[in-house]
């Protein structure tokens, strides 16, 4: 079936099996390999993308549901070569190690900061609880996200 949707700001059309997972379509058909598969059951969050601005697990979504929707992937976070504040903070504070969870973490953190820019550390832990990381123990990820939030507040 043919599906029209917006992908990272561009109108795209694809002919695809409707039950294909959005994650596979992004990775295989559009070669956007930034979204990762860690579990395939919505547990780890490595495949997090935005659909109409909302963070979702792309491994759980049949692509048929994307008709007319707006999809954004980790590849859209940086503009040109300029990393977003969240991405820069993840590097600076050591919030990325092996990096396989990082695209999902960067996406979820960006969504969390939009939704609750004044979240406390404890609240940020709740917001990030759908994204598993095995390397960091989460401390440096939370440091990075909270620091990005503080910087946004400072710069208005």
């Amino acid at each position: 079936m043919k599906i029209d949707f917006t992908l990272n700001g561009e109108q795209r059309e694809i002919d695809v099996t409707p039950m294909s997972r959005l994650l596979d379509v992004l990775r295989c058909d559009f070669e956007l390999t930034g979204s990762k598969e860690g579990c395939g059951e919505g547990e780890c969050g490595a495949c997090t993308v935005f659909v109409d601005g909302k963070a979702v697990n792309s491994c759980l979504i049949p692509v048929a549901q994307m008709q007319g929707r707006e999809v954004r992937t980790v590849e859209s976070l940086a503009s040109n070569e300029m990393l977003s504040d969240v991405q820069q903070a993840l590097i600076k504070f050591g919030g990325t190690q092996c990096g396989i969870c990082t695209p999902g973490i960067a996406m979820m953190a960006s969504a969390a900061l939009e939704a609750e820019p004044n979240a406390s550390r404890a609240r940020m832990r709740e917001l990030m609880a759908g994204n598993l990381c095995r390397c960091t123990g989460y401390q440096l990820i939370i440091d990075a996200v909270i620091s990005a939030a503080e910087a946004r507040r400072r710069h208005g």
Partner: peptide
Amino acid sequence: RVDGHAKVSGRAIYVD
């Protein structure tokens, strides 16, 4: 980190 930019931007190439 030397691999930081590639990893946060989703450009790091893993086997899959």
